[in-house]
C-alpha cells in the first residue's frame, strides 16, 4: 500500500471510529501490516462496554471499509489505567 493511500486509510478509520464511539474513543493506534491485511488498528476505549455493543459498532466500521476495498484488522483495548495502576507481582 502506497504511503498516501495508507495515510488516507488511517484517517478513514479514525473518522469511522469517532462516528461509532464518540467520547468513548480515547485513541486509535495503527500498526502493521503483519500478515495479509492492509493495516491494523487498535481502538482504545475509555470505558468497558458489552461485546454485543462493541460488535455492532465494529460492524459499522468494517462495512464501509470493505465496500471501499480495504482489508483491515481492528481490535479493541479498554483503558484500565484509571482502575489499575500496577499489577502486583507483574513480570515482564
Amino acid at each position: 500500500m502506497k504511503v498516501l493511500q495508507r495515510k488516507a486509510l488511517k484517517q478513514r478509520i479514525m473518522n469511522l471510529a469517532k462516528e461509532q464511539f464518540g467520547d468513548l474513543l480515547k485513541d486509535v493506534r495503527f500498526s502493521g501490516p503483519f500478515e495479509e491485511e492492509d493495516l491494523d488498528a487498535d481502538l482504545i476505549l475509555r470505558e468497558r462496554i458489552s461485546l454485543n455493543e462493541l460488535g455492532a459498532k465494529f460492524l459499522n466500521i468494517y462495512q464501509p471499509l470493505e465496500e471501499e476495498g480495504y482489508n483491515v484488522l481492528i481490535g479493541h483495548k479498554f483503558d484500565e489505567r484509571s482502575k489499575k495502576v500496577k499489577t502486583k507481582g507483574e513480570k515482564r
Binding site: 503483519f34 460488535g55 455492532a56 465494529f58 468494517y62 484488522l73 481492528i74 481490535g75
Partner: peptide, 19 residues
C-alpha cells in the same frame, strides 16, 4: 453477524501478542 468482527478482534489480539 457480530461474530465476524469478534473473530477479527481475536485475530488482531493474536497478531499483537505474536508480533
Amino acid at each position: 453477524a457480530q461474530m465476524i468482527p469478534l473473530l477479527r478482534d481475536m485475530r488482531r489480539n493474536r497478531i499483537n501478542a505474536d508480533y
